[in-house]
Design a protein around this nucleic acid. Structure first.
Length: 478
RNA sequence: GCCCCCUUCGUCUAAUGGUCAGGACGUCAGGUUUUCAACCUGAAAACAGGGGUUCGAUCCCCCUAGGGGGCGCCA
């Protein structure tokens, strides 16, 4: 009988929740859900200088927006420092660690020497056997872990396979700083053990740490968790993800108008696959996700594919939900306040009614909002350059002829409007496009926009006719 | 420099000791359409290089090259 799976997402709050972290969280979450286990959240805030309250908030917020929930309360690593210190002392008492009195300057010199000699620039173990009585006065010692010097440390990684490190390449790392605070590798081991973590799923930048942590687990007589080191996400140029490309916080993706479901779908396919399946529901993801199907090579972040996926999710999301999401998004946009004012209290209904035509042609929510501008535009509509071309004198004339027909029309449903305009086109012997294009330009100010009959219907009789008149007159010679 | 990892269309990826090496995004060409989008059809597009093992290697082994990660009293 196997234990319940417990995974953890353990970000350090030194910045936002970036895209790689988001995927790591997603994988942990999916694996926990898949196995019916739990995902815990641990905030690794032991670097007091760099950790910030704002970063913690941003991370929690990002996870919530992505709809990745965690079990229990977040655990703040800093609050566990006493326990970590206790374990460091225990290792010291058992002779599995020792006090090191080397100064920063000495360590620096040591590293330079090692590098010059072509060795790994690690600690040389000077204080491993030296007696504390030889310690120079006035130096507070750090505690170093006495790492095995011979043999190998082997990681049986669920993604990377069997990875072997020669112990001679792993130096004696500091586990307790001279100021008495614990360091990362010790804290992680103690916390993973105390939290009952069974599976550690994280970026493969931690692969070497896995070896060091394994050594500490062994020294403590504890079982190691199952490891799964996931390849990192690279930028479009194959280099490390930088701010220039995707290393934005997830809140930036939210602000760009991506849907969390789309981002999750995109992210899960980056480095993991289930046959030829591309688009999958969260339920399917949970059902199908497994560690063994994670690839071993780094993946490049591709905004274009994300956009495609986002377009799909926008098209298949209900009108009402899209309106809700847009409501939440607008305040985050640069000109959000002004837009909100123009929409007013009655604009949301209009937006929802226009949604069927709008959502067909937007890749992001921001694009959708942009396309919906005609709904809230003040008259007269300012024509964009493209639309200006469509509304040439000929177009204005056509509209002038169409106007009387529209005025007598009683039924302003999209279908009867379509019939009316089609009949007009036929009677005047021109192609439907010849009529539809200037009509669109007059009503929306744009050359591309939703279905024109829907636009007419959504704006309503009064508004539509007034707008057409505006544009026809604006073009008529005074 | 040392250690570790990786390498299939431009990108994300699938599959297999014998396949026309599959799908998706993107691109291109058609179709449909009131424009755009969506949708439909079709096309171009990949096993990094070199050695082995084998009747046969994209697949197994080794080397090279390229890319990435790590090497703190950071996490």
């Amino acid at each position: 009988m196997s234990r319940e799976v417990i995974t953890r997402f353990a970000p350090s709050p030194t910045g936002y929740l970036h895209i790689g972290g988001a995927r790591t969280a997603l994988f942990n979450w999916l694996y926990a859900k898949h196995t019916g286990g739990k995902m815990l959240l641990r905030i690794e805030d032991t670097d007091r200088a760099r950790s910030t309250e704002g970063a913690i908030l941003a991370i929690l917020d990002g996870l919530r927006w992505l709809e990745l929930d965690w079990d229990g309360e977040p655990i703040y690593q800093l609050t566990r420092a006493e326990r970590h210190r206790e374990i460091a002392e225990k290792l010291l008492a058992e002779g599995k660690a020792y006090r090191c009195y080397a100064t920063a300057a000495e360590l620096q010199a040591m590293r330079e020497r090692a590098r010059a000699e072509g060795r790994a620039p690690g600690y040389d173990g000077t204080w491993r056997h030296r007696d504390p009585s030889e310690a120079p006065p006035g130096i507070e010692p750090a505690i170093r872990f006495k790492a095995p010097r011979e043999g190998e440390t082997v990681i049986e990684d669920r993604v990377q396979g069997r990875v072997v490190f020669a112990n001679k390449d792993l130096d004696d790392l500091v586990i307790l700083r001279s100021d008495g605070t614990p360091t990362y590798n010790l804290s992680v081991v103690v916390d993973d053990h105390d939290m009952g973590i069974t599976h550690v799923i994280r970026g493969d930048d931690h692969l070497t740490n896995a070896a060091r942590q394994t050594q500490i687990f062994r020294a403590l007589g504890w079982d190691t968790p199952v490891y799964a080191h996931v390849p990192l996400i690279h930028g479009p140029d194959g280099a490390k993800l930088s701010k220039r490309h995707g290393a934005l916080g997830v809140e930036a993706y939210r602000a760009m108008g991506y849907l969390p479901a789309a981002l999750r779908n995109y992210l899960v396919r980056l480095g993991w696959s289930h046959g030829d399946d591309e688009i999958m529901s969260t339920e399917q993801m949970i059902e199908w996700f497994d560690l063994d199907a994670i690839g071993r090579s780094a993946a490049r972040f591709d905004f274009v594919k994300l956009e495609n996926l986002n377009g799909y999710y926008i098209r298949t999301t209900s009108d009402a939900e899209l309106v809700t999401r847009i409501k939440a998004l607008i305040p985050e946009l640069p000109d959000g306040a002004a837009l909100l004012e123009r929409i007013g209290s009655d604009g949301w209904g209009k937006l929802e009614r226009a949604m069927p035509g709008l959502k067909e042609r937007a890749k992001t929510l921001v694009e959708l909002i942009d396309n919906a501008g005609y709904l809230f535009a003040r008259r007269p509509i300012a024509l964009e350059p493209q639309a200006e071309k469509l509304l040439d004198p000929e177009g204005r004339q056509t509209l002038g002829q169409l106007l009387p027909r529209l005025e007598t029309l009683d039924d302003w449903s999209a279908s009867s409007l379509e019939d009316c305009v089609k009949a007009f086109a036929e009677d005047s012997g021109c192609k439907l496009g010849k009529v539809a294009q200037p009509l669109r330009a007059a009503l929306t100010g744009r050359s591309t926009s939703p279905g024109i009959f829907d636009v007419l219907a959504v704006l309503g009789r009064q508004e539509s006719l007034a707008r057409i008149r505006d544009q026809v007159h604006a073009g008529a010679p005074a």
